[in-house]
Design a protein around this nucleic acid. Structure first.
Length: 203
DNA sequence: ACCGCGATGCCCT
DNA sequence: GGGCATCGCGGTA
């Protein structure tokens, strides 16, 4: 399969977030491949979105990638120990991004299990299987995504998104998670997930 | 099952 | 110095 092209990402985050559901996120490391199906994503709409790091046109070293071209990774650290993986959307100068919040493991299961729990997949308890990739921090741990991948081009062959099954998905829109500080923006329905999916972080 | 809390480092004021 | 786009633990039931 082949990475989605630049133009896929050159649209508003609320559109890209929904269209990313069901697609496959791949990270190739030393010839080994980890792949997961995206089941939950949030749109951060930029300068007029109080929850976005780029709200009000804030432009600091951390958020600089968001002002660049679409299809690049924006990775940041939260709570001192977890990373969040985002994909930049819209053209240069418009600082939007989509946060990938949860996914279902589909390939490289043993690598994923090692990265999360230091043991092979078939030795995981049921609760561990469920917790492999059902949250933004867990997902980054599982895929070995950290700040060294900030600014990485996803239109390439190392870290990228490819087509999944093109079946019609039941998509739910809801409020975004963990942004109570964001005033009126905390109620916007800019979180999207596949209905009833076991790897969604919060039902 | 649910709830509360601490960890931990970087960013920005 | 304050506050995170989080997670896993240990408590109670």
């Amino acid at each position: 399969m082949k990475a989605l092209g630049r133009e896929f990402y050159n649209r508003d985050s609320v559109i890209v977030a929904q269209e990313l559901l069901g697609k496959i996120l791949v990270h190739e490391i030393n010839g080994q491949k980890i792949s997961v199906k995206i089941v939950e994503a949030e749109a951060y709409m930029g300068t007029f979105d109080r929850a976005a790091h780029s709200f009000g046109g804030r432009r600091t070293p951390r958020v600089e990638v968001m002002y660049g071209r679409p299809g690049f990774a924006y990775v940041f650290l939260v709570y001192g120990m977890y990373h969040c993986f985002n994909i930049v959307t819209r053209e240069e100068g418009i600082p939007q991004a989509v946060l990938i919040r949860a996914a279902e493991p589909v390939g490289g299961l043993d690598l994923i299990a090692q990265n999360r729990f230091k043991k092979s997949y078939h030795l995981l308890r049921k609760s561990q299987v469920k917790n492999l990739t059902n949250g933004p921090g867990k997902l980054c741990r599982a895929l070995l995504i950290d700040k060294s991948l900030n600014g990485e081009d996803l239109c390439s062959n190392k870290l990228y998104v490819e087509e999944g099954d093109n079946e019609k998905l039941p998509i739910v829109a809801s409020k975004r998670i963990g942004i109570d500080y964001a005033g009126e923006a905390k109620d916007y329905l800019w979180r999207f997930y596949i209905d009833n999916h076991e790897y969604v972080s919060v039902k």
